[in-house]
Design a protein around this nucleic acid. Sequence first.
DNA 1: TAAAGAAGTGAATAATGATTCACTTCTTTA
DNA 2: TAAAGAAGTGAATCATTATTCACTTCTTTA
Lengths: 199, 199
Amino acid sequence: MAYRETDLVRQRKVAQKSGLLHAAETLVREGGFGALTIQAVAEGAGVGVGTVYRYFSGKDELATEVFKRATTREVAAVREALSGPGGAATRLAVATEVFAQRAFSAPKLAWALIAEPVDPAVDVARLQYRKTYTALFETVVANGVATGEFAPQNPGLSAAALVGAMAESILGPLANPVCNAETIAALRLFCMRAVGAQC
Amino acid sequence: MAYRETDLVRQRKVAQKSGLLHAAETLVREGGFGALTIQAVAEGAGVGVGTVYRYFSGKDELATEVFKRATTREVAAVREALSGPGGAATRLAVATEVFAQRAFSAPKLAWALIAEPVDPAVDVARLQYRKTYTALFETVVANGVATGEFAPQNPGLSAAALVGAMAESILGPLANPVCNAETIAALRLFCMRAVGAQC
DNA sequence: TAAAGAAGTGAATAATGATTCACTTCTTTA
DNA sequence: TAAAGAAGTGAATCATTATTCACTTCTTTA
């Protein structure tokens, strides 16, 4: 036995994989999943295309991992906002702002995660993502309805509509590409009225 | 001079082009623009692939024409609903229902027109489409704000958010795929509250 | 240092789908 | 009917990407 993987090698492999994922996410940030090609990932990470296949079984797996990493971050940020202090109205308002801020700072990424259709493999992950996302909003809407802060309504539909309203007004092709405090404030008011919160 | 195009030939050419567009739209209805291949269009219309190129300079032109035809119809339907009788609230409610009904009856098409990313060539047409669409809603929102029926708000942002809310709750991956009167009613209420209409 | 084991490489291959073009068939008129 | 003009055809070609694999280089240990 003349070879055995050492910690040094393990670290390098982790770093390599991380570098590949970083290069891949950069591409998605800049041009959505449509810009994610193995060639470009390899180039961005400074390795050969074959190397990518040492770390990922194929494009699907790479794309899915990029998707999961990014969505985990996004969901965590919104979840944190929704689990903060205050009533349902306050928390929904804060969550709306968090969503808007993050989307503004990386619109292509936000669009890629929420709307861009991709491989069926990634679509499975996206379905889970949207479910999680919508569920977060659904919870706060249902909570507000229960406490009487919001109007009676179908929380599931309202949650989907809220996500759609946020996505369209901020990521849509007609959206102001500049981070605009007024836009965010207007969106927050729209969402507040939509759930029937008094404000 | 031994040949000159006659009316008969002209008619046939018009019919042929119309048949190609019909075949193309059928494909988009069934699978979005992703399903629009020249091969499939030719097959659907019962002609050779080369024939498609006698009528369209390339795939871009074909896709753009399909898009424009379909969107013209959609916009007309919503515009009619918005220009009907009654106040801003009534007209917005009717328009919401029209949008929802049409989207339910052809969800893939609606999704393809509103959300599916396609060739840059088609994207130009889509931008125009969304502008038109949003402008329609913007007008009624501004109208309602002016008459005091709706709360004060930024009509442009609200219009985009309304379109997003409708699209997401009806076309989104989590949407109920069945035409559901309750869903439509819930969406209508959401939209009414969102603009601050009393109902 | 030598040899085993594994990572790195990128030209070659595969798959998909748009586009071309030399050819055939149809339509018209002298 | 003959010949011009145009439409129809689809196999061949081009373009883009994912994927493979025979080979090279690196790392480890006896």
